[in-house]
C-alpha cells in the first residue's frame, strides 16, 4: 500500500483530470441530448428521423471505438487537437445519445392528463413544451440522468488508455514504474472511482424513491 500512499499527489492530479473530463463531456453530452430529445418529440418528421438515426448509430458503436476514431483516426486526417479535447469529443458523441434517452424517458413519464389539460387551457405547442413538458420531464429524468452520468464517469477510464492522464492513465503510468505494487495501485484507483460513483448512485436511488412517493 506504500506505493499508493506515496503517490497520492499524482493520483490526485489524475482524479482532478477525471473530474474535468466528466464535467466537460457531461455538460456537452447533456446539451447534445437535450437537442436530440427536442428533435425526437418535435412535430417535424425529418427531425424525428434524424434523432432516431443518430441514436441508433452512435449508441451501438462501443465507447472504445468512438475514442479510437477521435484519437487515432482524426489526427491521421489532419485534425490537430489535444488528446483531452478529442476524448471529450468522442465521449460527447457517444453519450449525447444516452442523455437523450434519459431525458425522453422523463418526458414520456409525464401524465397524459397534463398535456390534455394544457391543450384544454388553450396553450400553444411551444408553451406546452416550455411550461409543462420540459420542467416536469427534466425533473422526472433526474435519476436516469445521474445514472447516465455514472456510466460516463466509468467510460472516461478508457481515455486513460488513449493518452489522457486522467485517473486510469495515471494508474497505468504508476504501474509501469512500480510493478511490484500493482494491487495497491489498482485498489487506490478503485477507491477514487467509487468516491465519485457510489454517492451518486445512492443519490439517484434516493431521489427516485422520493419521486415515486410524491406522485
Amino acid at each position: 500500500m506504500n506505493a499508493a500512499i506515496e503517490n497520492l499527489g499524482t493520483f490526485w492530479s489524475g482524479f482532478v483530470t477525471t473530474l474535468g473530463l466528466v464535467a466537460l463531456s457531461g455538460v456537452f453530452s447533456f446539451l447534445g441530448g437535450l437537442v436530440l430529445a427536442s428533435f425526437a418529440i418535435s412535430t417535424n418528421p425529418l427531425l424525428r428521423r434524424i434523432s432516431m438515426a443518430y441514436i441508433g448509430l452512435m449508441r451501438n458503436i462501443p465507447a472504445a471505438a468512438h475514442l479510437f476514431f477521435m484519437i487515432f483516426i482524426l489526427p491521421l486526417l489532419g485534425v490537430k487537437a489535444s488528446f483531452f479535447a478529442l476524448a471529450i469529443a468522442g465521449i460527447t458523441v457517444y453519450f449525447s445519445a444516452y442523455y437523450c434517452e434519459a431525458i425522453r424517458s422523463g418526458i414520456n413519464a409525464i401524465g397524459k392528463g397534463q398535456l390534455e389539460a394544457s391543450r384544454a387551457l388553450g396553450l400553444k405547442n411551444r408553451q406546452t413544451l416550455l411550461l409543462i413538458v420540459l420542467p416536469q420531464g427534466l425533473s422526472n429524468s433526474v435519476p436516469p440522468l445521474i445514472n447516465t452520468t455514472i456510466a460516463l464517469v466509468k467510460v472516461t477510464a478508457i481515455a486513460g488508455v488513449f493518452g489522457v492522464t486522467e485517473l486510469f492513465g495515471t494508474m497505468l503510468q504508476l504501474i509501469n514504474v512500480n510493478d511490484s505494487a500493482v494491487i495497491a495501485l489498482m485498489v487506490m484507483t478503485a477507491i477514487m472511482y467509487s468516491v465519485i460513483t457510489i454517492p451518486a448512485a445512492l443519490a439517484a436511488a434516493a431521489i427516485e424513491r422520493k419521486v415515486t412517493f410524491s406522485s
Binding site: V153, T156, A157, I158, G160, F168, A190, Y193, S194, I198
Partner: peptide, 11 residues
C-alpha cells in the same frame, strides 16, 4: 453489487 457497479469495466 454496489462496489462492482461503481467501477469502470476497464479497471
Amino acid at each position: 453489487i454496489e462496489a462492482l457497479r461503481g467501477l469502470p469495466e476497464l479497471l
